[in-house]
Design a protein around this nucleic acid. Sequence first.
DNA 1: ATTCTAACA
DNA 2: TGTTAGTA
Length: 134
Amino acid sequence: MAELDSEKPVYSIGIVQEKTGLTGRQIRYYEESELIKPARTKGNQRIYSQSDIEKLKEIKEMLEKGLNIAGIKEKLGTVNEVKKKKKTKISESLYDGRPLTKFNRGKRGLTSLYPVSDRAQLLEILDKKDNDKD
DNA sequence: ATTCTAACA
DNA sequence: TGTTAGTA
């Protein structure tokens, strides 16, 4: 059914922002610092896995503890070609430039039942209720 | 509407 | 880090 592969990239940066409390700027900066290596879609959009989110949370905590990027690199280690064996080609098969975002996050079948504008508002409300399941 | 890169405050 | 411009 719904395999929960923590390595499978499915989250858009927007969702990662909500889940980690970090800003998009920070998330992208940490990637630039080689602390994380999210996958990309054909449209070049970043798609994060659950493990990416967890690592981001660790980074956030370490940063709050006063460590700098360099220090974190030594602690967690740079994500140097770790998962190079099985390439998740999900980016080519499922997400053609459109990763999981607020619009298509697991919300039963109302994903495409409402006009885009109303859907955004609706999903946002549903998400708040659904937010405490993490 | 959402994300991306690059660049400047 | 925040933000903004111009895109995809």
